[in-house]
């Protein structure tokens, strides 16, 4: 089938504003949008710039705004996207070139929530920190985040003010806040209770719709809010 692919392109060395360019691509219904981008880059215009690594929905490199919604280009099939497809860079970030954005502010927010297990105590048996199945289940959902930034860059609060920590950072804070083995819960909750933390969420559910891993992000944000209340942080 013939697909008309519209890509919002930006060359920092020549353009002052991004502009749309159209490409006619031949595709199978089972092709992914990423395959179309490859076709353009490999056979039509080698200057097209985008990020991708594993191409199988695991590394989270190729989040893009496809047909108006944030998705992974490697997971979205042509048969679902239709014969007229638009592709843009994710929003609220500085565009480096074409579909490639500067992810550094996203990582800064991520690093700020201390996304690692903090526990300096020696386990009872000297080897393992045991956990009940119910305790493990509490962070099962949020531990599946692949840091693709589809949620944060679909959030209208983040679009208008990037000082908001964003859903992805909250999800990754949640991952450790509700982990029974972790000892830095209070410190993370302090960070989450910042004026630019959980309070800025308006529960518009854009993040939930955008998440390629179907993480219940708004639920996680609410749970962090509840934990702040329980810990009596003020």
């Amino acid at each position: 089938m013939d697909v008309q692919l519209r890509i919002r392109r930006f060359n920092p060395e020549a353009d002052t504003e991004p502009h749309w360019e159209e490409y006619a691509v031949e595709a199978e219904p089972t092709d992914r949008v990423l395959d179309l981008l490859h076709q353009v880059k490999w056979y039509q215009d080698g200057t097209l710039t985008f990020r991708r690594s594993c191409a199988h929905g695991v590394c989270g490199s190729d989040a893009m705004l496809i047909n108006g919604q944030n998705r992974l280009a490697c997971e979205y099939l042509v048969k679902d996207a239709g014969t007229s497809i638009t592709v843009e860079a994710i929003r609220g970030m500085t565009i480096v070139k074409d579909l490639l954005v500067d992810m550094e502010p996203f990582w800064d927010s991520y690093k700020q929530v201390m996304p690692f297990l903090v526990n300096d105590e020696i386990p009872a048996d000297g080897k393992e920190r045991r956990q009940s199945q119910a305790d493990r289940e509490r962070y099962e959902d949020t531990s599946r985040c692949i840091l693709c930034a589809a949620c944060t860059t679909s959030c209208p609060v983040f679009w208008s003010d990037q000082s908001y920590v964003g859903p992805a950072a909250i999800v990754n804070a949640h991952r450790f806040i509700v982990d029974s083995r972790d000892t830095a819960k209070e410190e993370r909750l302090e960070i989450m209770a910042d004026p630019d933390g959980v309070w800025r969420c308006r529960t518009t559910f854009n993040c939930v719709e955008a998440c390629p891993r179907d993480i219940k992000i708004t639920k996680a944000i609410l749970e962090v809010t509840q934990e702040i209340g329980k810990a009596g942080i003020r």
């Binding site: 930006f10 504003e17 991004p18 929003r91 609220g92 970030m93 500085t94 565009i95 500067d102 550094e104 502010p105 800064d108 927010s109 690093k111 700020q112 990037q162 000082s163 920590v165 909750l189 302090e190 960070i191 209770a193 910042d194 004026p195 630019d196 933390g197 309070w199 702040i228 209340g229 942080i233 003020r234």
Partner: peptide
């Protein structure tokens, strides 16, 4: 620069806000 994008690394350490809560 298409969008402003202040890096959080350059901001002061986040602090809990009772008012916002």
């Amino acid at each position: 620069v298409i969008y402003t994008n202040p890096s959080r690394a350059a901001r002061p350490k986040p602090e809990a806000s009772g008012t916002e809560r």
